[in-house]
């Protein structure tokens, strides 16, 4: 994405990490420190929901696998 301050293209992951830096001084009061730490690790190297769907389709070539993934993730953690 575009870093408007630098007026240059930057990796999106790096700019997302900058957003996490931006909010860092308020997350303790919100009780979200641990979750932001997870987001930081995830933003650096994790996959999005779209990536997981594409990977599921690549494995099987069957879109029903993608739907099953979404159903499974809807239930996860409840």
């Amino acid at each position: 994405m575009i870093d408007f301050g630098l007026k240059s293209e930057q990796p999106t992951r790096a700019l997302v990490l900058e957003v996490l830096d931006f909010v860092d001084d308020v997350v303790d009061e919100l009780g979200s420190r641990e979750e932001m730490r997870f987001l930081r690790e995830w933003a650096a190297s994790g996959n999005t929901g779209a990536d997981r769907q594409l990977a599921a389709f690549e494995r099987t070539g069957d879109l029903r696998t993608v739907v099953d993934l979404l159903v499974d993730e809807t239930r996860r953690g409840l």
Binding site: V19, V23, D25, E29, L30, M36, F38, W42
Partner: peptide, 13 residues
């Protein structure tokens, strides 16, 4: 939940 926390943190900031 984590995504929502980031939205809330942005608003708070």
């Amino acid at each position: 939940d984590r995504h929502r926390r980031l939205v809330q943190a942005l608003v708070a900031k």
